[in-house]
Amino acid sequence: MALPAQENGWDLVIEPPRGWLALHLRDLWRYRDLAGLFVRRDFVATYKQTILGPLWHVIQPLLTTLMFTVVFGRIAGLPTDGVPQFVFYMAGTTVWNYFAQCLTRTSNTFIANAGIFGKVYFPRMVVPVSVVISQLIAFAIQFGFFLAVYGLFWARGAPVQPNWAILLLPVLLAMMAGLGLGFGVIISSLTTKYRDLQVLVQFGVQLWMYATPVIYPLSTMGEKYRWLIVANPMTAIVETFRYAFFGTGVFSWAYLGYSAGFMVLLLLAGMAVFNRVERTFMDTV
């Protein structure tokens, strides 16, 4: 909302919304302390209110992984590129969870924060950005758990081999954060007008997981339909993650580049829509 006032010494110019390309990144940076405090608040609030606290972050992927192992591994017998099923599914769930949480938890930004947004101005983007950072904490716990399980399998001589691609982990995280944030803010902008979109989000993310090689390796996809799965920007990320730890699966700079490009465009579009909506959404909520 704050346009940097170029003209003679005005610090702030309030004008009707016009244009789509104002991203207000400088404004966002100025409020970085607030983002930090939101992260802290979310952390404290989440863990003070639950009995098990951070343990939830371990229980949830553990149960999911167990279920996947039984249903898709034992019953359906889906191949896992020779990787032990348990650790294969766990890798998939761990990465997917971060993305899914980023998306769903940012997708209700406007509705969930209407009270505070109606009373005080700060760059609204601070809220979804802090959510993405908060989720990193949950990811760190889940990732630590995954590493422990992985180490166990590795020590027992399972055919898993970490390689240099592990160094790409921060990049993968950034890409997932960007994708989750991009989709999340677009959905949150649309939900100010279409409330029923909210219901779709949980369900949509669930379906999306099956369109991503989380419970199956990309290599099982026939050439004919492979492009469909590759078109999904999450595919390269999940595949690269597993490649880094297991040495199996598809690693392709082109696929990764595609995901990165997709993420950047999506994020720019998302922020533009979000910034546009944030100026007047109080009138419609």
Partner: peptide, 23 residues
């Protein structure tokens, strides 16, 4: 003035930092 919502037309220019206390 608090930038909670945007004007439909017109312009407000401000010198200095604004803090608003609507609540």
């Amino acid at each position: 003035l608090s930038r909670v919502t945007a004007p439909t037309s017109g312009r407000i220019r401000v010198k200095g930092r604004v803090a608003s206390l609507l609540e």
